[in-house]
Design a protein around this nucleic acid. Structure first.
Lengths: 366, 366
DNA sequence: TTGTATGCGTTATCAA
DNA sequence: TTGATAACGCATACAA
């Protein structure tokens, strides 16, 4: 039986012109398809040109005139590379609720990817139940890319581990030490928080309280750790009493509570930054409701950046998470993994201390 | 010559264990590779099961025990499509300056793409070297996807046309009627603006002035057209005098000018929305500087949404551009083109009228 | 109902 | 220096 023309092909392929293939470039240039491949995929092997300058020119010209672009799927199948980096977030990458946006990270991710010569594939998460929905192989689609960046707290561990075990380059944006073998890049919340505490201690605050949400995320734990370490370093009383942990700070952080603390000699509060900003919001409103002056009566600091809807307020003392830099660092690491380099870089990115008008020396006690 | 073991394979493929293939699943289940494929990729064709329940079970069991996951590259290669939609913006997709961001569109783009089973490839036109260098064939890279969405005012016409001529599915986000053959999806500024004028006319305003920037973008032209049509429909005097066009409204829109208009009987102003929001800003500050009360002395309307940094101000009367919906509509259209369907849908998306506190009946003239 | 054969577009090997 | 050719893993038309 002789070969069919195009078996395995759905009949209604669409009436449009197919994308140009290497074979067509070859015909136009009067060479073989393999030659086209050689010309078009420069070997970094350092091997000198095996193709004559003349042929080379003709092939390039033909490719250009045809608008040829290599098929990423075929490339990967042939065990080559795509120049495609994946970005996968379990929740929507562009949520309607801008509060949870990964936008600032993406700024850095895009810039760095472009600089390194990669395009980005945004794998639409399972949020909408669309592309990859919830199936166990939802994450599998990312294998189309050369490597993939994961963002968000809720990355399914098993799937991620599977990818890593298969040798697929993966980088997680955000600390993920529990996931063994998963490379990650994160902000150094511990150090940054220590810095904020040190700042308050220098101002002569003696009792400081951390307001945090009831969440087990590494980001929360890190801040608490940095907080306690900071207290110790300053020779201040630490202990669980210094941490106020609440599932709903905006409710449970009452003005009475605040006054009680003040009476006990607490002169400063630090709140963690989270998606919702609940801790900080709760703290702010409680202070106001209690009629306390800031920074006169109490100093306030935010362990992160203020929510965007509070943009009209003065920017509080705290630190800035360098999200674009984080994104860029993650891409650099991922690119290194893709290139087969051993992972050997500092995964922590420092946060810059941000002075602000919400902290000052405590009022002398009477 | 007998077949090599794994030719075309780079020798140092990595020491990692290869993932299971359909062939291995087949061996374990005692069936052929094709059968495995049949079982594992359910056809939505509605065709009943061609595979016996027994075989089916065995295959699934074998696949599970081996931890089989399909290779997306192979799958896409065989299917002759990527399930990838490109998104191309001439400026960075994620600019540092959030003002100019396409974020709201992307929200809808992502959601709809996910719903339709597509992933997104982000192309950056302005990228600094790297992937998308600035070459004339920069746009050519988008051919890697099954189709591409273009966003922004500055899409190079020639390149776009070339893509379309080659039968590559292209959709432009924003009206682009000059570019023949280029499918587009846009907001119906004409109709929306007419609505705003009608609203003012109903309030009994008799003289209304449009403040616009000196830009030839379709978006500006459409608003002007809708404005003039709205005036006519209400039986009001139109003509060029009703349009104030300025390259720098924030400078040229002086309080004196405003007073002069008021003296002439102008009781309402509408300003177009642009990237910078210059028209609206200029109008607002001039009204304030002139000491005019709004909506007492003058009614103001904004043909679009207010800039985010004016979030603290009351939201003016006007209309909302449904950006997420626009993005979604564009993706739907693009998907239809990719699927080979003839383009046959309404490219205009309506804008919702937004009542606000900045308009009211004009003060009775003395 | 299942197996066989073939090709999707690319890279890489080997012979010419 | 270039041209055949064999896979990569999967999906399908067709035969059995």
């Amino acid at each position: 039986m002789e070969p069919r023309k195009r078996p395995g092909r759905t009949p209604a392929q669409g009436g449009r012109t197919a994308r140009p293939r290497q074979a067509e470039v070859a015909r136009l240039a009067g060479v073989s398809q393999a030659t086209v491949s050689l010309v078009l995929s420069p070997k970094p092997d350092g091997k000198g040109r095996l193709i004559s300058e003349e042929t080379r020119r003709r092939v390039l010209e033909a490719a250009r005139s045809l608008g040829y672009v290599p098929d990423p799927a075929a490339r990967r199948l042939a065990a080559a590379r795509n120049n495609l980096l994946g970005v996968f977030s379990f929740t929507a990458t562009f949520p309607t609720d801008v509060q949870h946006s990964y936008y600032p990270f993406l700024v850095g991710v895009e810039r760095e990817a472009a600089a390194l010569g990669y395009d980005l594939v945004l794998f639409t998460g399972s949020s909408t139940g669309g592309a990859g929905a919830a199936g166990p192989d939802a994450l599998s689609r990312v294998r189309l890319a050369d490597g993939c960046l994961f963002i968000g707290r809720h990355t399914p561990r098993a799937e991620l581990k599977r990818l890593v075990e298969d040798g697929f380059p993966v980088v997680h944006l955000g600390r993920r030490e529990e996931l063994e073998g998963v490379a990650w890049v994160g902000a150094d919340y511990v150090e940054a928080t220590r810095g904020v505490v040190a700042h308050l201690a220098e101002l002569r605050h003696r009792r400081i309280v951390l307001v945090r949400e009831d969440d087990d995320a590494p980001a929360s734990a890190d801040r608490q750790r940095g907080f306690l370490e900071g207290l110790e370093a300053a020779g201040l009383a630490s202990g669980p009493a210094a941490v106020f942990r609440s599932a709903d700070p905006q409710r449970e952080l009452t003005p009475e509570r605040l006054r009680a603390w003040a009476d006990e000699g607490v002169t400063a509060f630090v709140a963690e930054e989270t998606d919702t900003g609940a801790a900080w919001r709760g703290l702010l409103s409680a202070v106001r409701a209690a009629g306390l002056d800031c920074p006169g009566d109490v100093s306030l600091a935010l362990l992160g950046s203020p929510p965007s809807d509070l943009a009209s307020e003065p920017v509080p003392t705290g630190f800035d998470i360098p999200r674009p830099q984080l994104g860029a660092a993650a891409v650099r690491l991922l690119a290194a993994l893709v290139a087969g380099e051993e992972e050997a870089r500092e995964p922590l990115v420092g946060c810059a201390f941000r002075p602000g008008p919400t902290t000052g020396p405590p009022r002398a006690r009477t």
